[in-house]
């Protein structure tokens, strides 16, 4: 599968990673190489095989639906690059 420039740009946009022209060129080759390599999976007959959802057999445990933690917003925003009081600050989103 040949990944073209437009596809590199598109997935970089979806992944929210800015890539410059030189990086895009390198990535194009590397991503194509990796996708070509994983294409060997096409050799495997998987009709009727269930895709794995959980690797160990376990029962999902349920708990009471109640708040068990929280109430310390200062602690939550402490690591933020920018905060005002107990709010995260981001660039203006709505005009």
């Amino acid at each position: 599968m040949e990944i073209d420039d437009a596809t590199v740009r598109k997935i970089a946009r979806l992944a929210r990673i800015k890539v410059d022209d030189a990086e895009a060129k390198t990535l194009k080759g590397e991503l194509t190489g990796i996708l070509d390599w994983v294409e060997q999976l096409d050799e495997v007959e998987t009709d009727g095989v269930e895709p794995m959802t959980c690797v160990t057999e376990m029962e999902m445990h349920m708990r009471t639906d109640k708040v068990t933690d929280g109430g310390y917003p200062e602690e939550i925003v402490r690591n933020a690059p920018q905060h005002a009081g107990t709010f995260f600050v981001v660039p203006k989103v709505v005009e």
């Binding site: 495997v44 895709p51 794995m52």
Partner: peptide, 26 residues
């Protein structure tokens, strides 16, 4: 991250991700 984004993106999810999870079952 880019490979992951690609294989999960619309139109490729079945061909890559589901295929790999089926192989994983095997």
């Amino acid at each position: 991250v880019l490979i992951g984004t690609y294989v999960l993106s619309a139109g490729y999810y079945d061909a890559y991700y589901l295929k790999a999870q089926r192989v994983r079952t095997l």
